[in-house]
Nucleic acid binder design. Structure first.
Lengths: 159, 159
DNA sequence: TTGTGTGCAAAAGCTTTGCATGTTG
DNA sequence: CAACATGCAAAGCTTTTGCACACAA
């Protein structure tokens, strides 16, 4: 597990490095540190949480750099950005993970992931039909997690 | 057309009225005025645009009331709230329209609507599989509108 | 050395809240 | 008349920007 994570981190750093080079962007230690922390972290996080996390690790970074780097990482597909219905962007690492969508509990905010091939067919059909060159999509399902959290228990009971 | 719109507005006001009553919320003129303006307007708008629109019609309303009323209308399914990738909630009237999803041009922000029955199957399958009681969903496809706008023309040319 | 990237703090943009006043039930 | 809704302005929160300094190329 340790080994695999280290290798993954080396791999994404090399991809990021190539991307920065190709765009003539500079390879700063902050950018690589942020990438590394993201790939050490668990699935979903927001910009502020990442900033606090970096601070706690005693990195000297600013919010500006966190936001700037997140945008670079989104652009080279190493990180995905989501909006789960609130006015707060959520991010997740995306390299090495297969495409997936999200199921969000409206009661406790828990996020589950799922894959369904039918979404690809929808994209193909609609891109074709409406003459769009589709780049990406976002599919979120919202509901109660079947009594797994307190609020959902209450909601299901009312039903 | 005129007739139909008037009838629609009467209908949604009656639904809203019933909803307010059932929750013991007050029937204020502001709430109905906001509902009416929304149903007279075109498809997608944000809270600020609606506020400005109300002001221009010489209504005396505040942003607080606009936001408050929008939330009430979302709760009784007369209005839908969307986040098209930016940190700005977009709203649209939803009564009498069949369920649809959105295709957004990443270049010009244009929004098209589409329907696809496969999304319902995905919801059914996943709700079942992951033990979620699914209430609603949001599916957005992002891409270039095939050269219909200036920026998309450029993007397609590069390709 | 040169100009891009950074940290810091202030500003901006959307949304919510507090308070005094007005109005519904 | 009592409680809730409103208007207004201020505060809150996430994200962006301006500026002087640092550092990658």
């Amino acid at each position: 597990m340790e080994k695999l994570q280290e290798e993954l981190i080396r791999e994404v750093k090399s991809i990021f490095s190539g991307h920065l080079e190709s765009q003539a962007f500079r390879k700063t230690p902050e950018r690589f540190a942020i990438l590394e922390e993201i790939y050490k972290r668990s699935d979903h996080f927001d910009a502020e949480a990442l900033y606090i996390h970096m601070k706690n690790q005693n990195y000297r970074v600013s919010r500006a750099t966190v936001y700037n780097t997140l945008e670079l990482l989104v652009n080279c597909d190493l990180v995905k950005k989501h909006q789960f219905g609130k006015n707060l962007a959520q991010y997740e690492k995306s390299y090495g993970y297969k495409q997936h969508d999200h199921l969000i509990c409206v009661d406790c905010g828990k996020v589950l992931e799922f894959c369904d091939p039918r979404i690809q067919s929808i994209k193909d059909t609609m891109g074709d039909l409406l003459k769009f060159n589709i780049l990406h999509h976002s599919l979120n399902l919202y509901g109660h997690c079947h009594g797994a959290c307190e609020k959902s228990k209450a909601a299901m009971a009312v039903k």
